[in-house]
């Protein structure tokens, strides 16, 4: 009993001590994309075509991409790592522009996203998500996380987020956030695309790292317009029996 008490006390002190710095640092995520699972959701494909695709490619359909989130308690910046990670064979492929800035203090979002053959600059106030907090816990990258779920109605995706309440920043990977703690794992449609934190590193973050560069080049739109573009494209593509996911960040 004594030992338990001591260990709890120790735990509390450690947590308390650590908390002082747990609001700034960087998180390296790995985004694993299972394309046969994603494409299996295309309504125009027949069951036979879906089965054939899964049988042929299902065992080897993973594509991985490292992502980086830099944050402090007021702001965050999410994009590709600064040093390019080359593909397995060492070849370099252009990565479609994907930069996401969040300003929690002033409730602002700025995203630079390439989609539909253009680069868009999406500026708006912070979006809120209708998160539902569930009774499930698990560990991600050494942090105990709680589960929360929501839905992306535009893309028709079921979103499951695992957030660490002892990293008290309402950020996260991709374009998600707004939970009581940092999202360390984000699961789209039960495993289609899973973005998981591999490493959480707390360090002092300079202002320049999080500052929005002045020369962000892109067509300026707001969040509503972004969603409209997205949903029109998905609708048109499905109608034309074309895969909409080739040209949008899914």
């Amino acid at each position: 009993m004594k030992a338990v008490l001591i260990s709890i006390l120790l735990l509390v002190t450690v947590v308390f001590y650590a908390d002082a710095q747990k609001t700034e640092g960087e998180i390296t995520y790995e985004r694993v994309f299972h394309w046969t699972r994603v494409y299996s959701r295309l309504s125009y494909m027949s069951q036979e075509e879906k089965d054939r695709m899964k049988l042929t490619w299902g065992n080897d359909d993973e594509s991985k991409q490292e992502m980086l989130l830099i944050f402090n308690d007021k702001q965050s910046y999410y994009s590709y790592p600064k040093v390019e990670t080359l593909s397995e064979g060492g070849y370099s492929w252009t990565k479609e522009e994907f930069k996401s800035y969040r300003d929690y203090e002033n409730g602002k979002m700025t995203d630079l996203i390439a989609m539909l053959g253009k680069t868009y600059l999406i500026e708006d106030s912070l979006q809120t998500f209708n998160w539902k907090v569930m009774n499930k816990i698990k560990e991600v990258a050494g942090y105990m996380c709680m589960m929360a779920v929501t839905e992306d109605t535009v893309k028709g995706q079921k979103i499951t987020a695992w957030f660490a309440d002892n990293i008290p920043v309402s950020g996260g990977p991709q374009l998600f956030g707004g939970l009581p703690g940092m999202i360390l794992e984000l699961d789209v449609n039960d495993g289609d695309i899973v973005t998981t934190a591999k490493e959480v590193k707390f360090r002092p973050v300079t202002e320049e790292e999080l500052a929005i560069p002045k020369k962000l080049k892109g067509r300026k739109i707001n969040h509503a317009k972004y969603q409209e573009l997205m949903s029109t494209h998905i609708r048109d593509s499905i109608k034309a029996h074309r895969n909409p996911f080739w040209s949008i960040p899914y």
Binding site: K132, N166, L179
Partner: peptide, 14 residues
């Protein structure tokens, strides 16, 4: 520093 949350009973919305 414990996290406290309020959810709606019907669907656990935060």
């Amino acid at each position: 520093e414990a996290t406290v949350m309020l959810l709606l009973p019907k669907d656990s919305s935060l």
